[in-house]
């Protein structure tokens, strides 16, 4: 009779008899075994198929489309790298690259710094700050479109806007169009996106701080270190792995930002908040220049990969 999958996976002698009362030892991987194949394929095939349909095929098709000139319903024309050449010669696209850079760096710096700082403070009273941390994390769970509509009202250009009303307490009659002024629109968006994104860095950094061995902190106390010194010299350096993950996740999220821009500014005013993600949407879906939009998508994909690959390599190396 064939051995069980667990026995096969573990190899001879790896699984002790339950009658013997011995502890179940973890199987040791010793390379590919022919007898594992059917079960393994059975388990991973659905994932591969789904991944292929929803990720790999659209990805390669987008790359393929980026080599064609497709305008509206007109037949596609092969243009090779023409769309890419046009793209980098397009002043509007170059402007979106800069806007994307400012938006990405801005939201990442603000949300991670704030999340990290709050995590440090919460670490001094973990139990008492649980409701606060919970509330902060909720913002991360709110859809960007929903928070965008909420902030649209807060940032209304008239005196009825909450922000203007609050400022109006100190400066009577104050009214500023935060989203209509090209000088403030992008920063308003960065602030809103950071507000939405601060919950995750807070939780990641807090978890990193919590994983610092108590003995290290106790030793510091015993040596007479003050809370600020403990935070600066122990908690902050030892929570850096959490910060790195938070930076990585925030960077990717900010690079791909679309919903909040679509809802709040539509890329305006005067294209002041048009990121690559929004440019891609405008070209593809409103202008219906699918090839050109696909080329912008590929550029964005490359930017995401440039950030992701070193981070993944680093994480993988860390795991080993």
């Amino acid at each position: 009779m064939a051995n069980s999958v667990a026995e096969q996976a573990a190899g001879p002698g790896e699984v002790s008899s339950s009658k013997g009362g011995a502890r179940l030892r973890l199987p040791v991987t010793r390379g590919w075994r022919l007898t594992d194949a059917p079960a393994a394929w059975l388990l991973i095939t659905p994932v591969i198929v789904l991944f292929g349909i929803s990720v790999v095929y659209p990805l390669f098709d987008t790359i393929r489309i980026s080599f064609f000139d497709i305008k509206g319903l007109a037949p596609a024309k092969w243009v090779g790298l023409g769309n890419y050449v046009t793209l980098f010669g397009d002043a509007t696209f170059r402007n979106t690259l800069l806007t994307t850079l400012i938006f990405t760096v801005g939201t990442t710096v603000i949300s991670v710094s704030l999340g990290w700082a709050l995590a440090m403070l919460c670490a001094f009273a973990p139990a008492q700050t649980t409701p606060f941390r919970g509330m902060m994390f909720v913002t991360f769970g709110i859809s960007e479109a929903v928070s965008g509509y909420m902030w649209l009202n807060i940032l209304r250009p008239d005196k009825a806007g909450l922000l203007n009303a609050v400022i109006g307490i100190f400066v009577p009659g104050y009214a500023h169009s935060w989203l209509g002024d090209p000088n403030t629109a992008l920063w308003a968006l960065i602030f809103v996106a950071s507000w939405s994104g601060v919950g995750l860095p807070l939780m990641l950094c807090f978890a990193a701080v919590q994983s610092i061995p108590r003995t290290v902190l106790e030793a510091a106390y015993m040596d007479g270190a003050k809370p600020f010194s403990i935070m600066r010299h122990i908690m902050m350096p030892l929570s850096l792995p959490g910060v790195r993950v938070a930076v990585f996740i925030n960077l990717l999220g900010a690079l791909r930002a679309f919903d909040i821009i679509y809802v709040m500014t539509g890329g305006g005013p005067v294209r002041a908040t048009e990121t690559v993600g929004y440019f891609m949407y405008r070209e593809s879906m409103t202008q219906f220049k699918l090839g050109y939009g696909a080329a912008a998508t590929v550029v964005l994909l490359v930017a995401v990969l440039v950030i992701s690959i070193p981070a993944i390599i680093q994480r993988t190396a860390g795991a080993k």
């Binding site: 250009p157 009214a175 169009s177 209509g180």
Partner: peptide, 8 residues
């Protein structure tokens, strides 16, 4: 103001 028009 132009900024108000641009936000409406």
């Amino acid at each position: 103001e132009p900024a108000t028009m641009l936000a409406i």
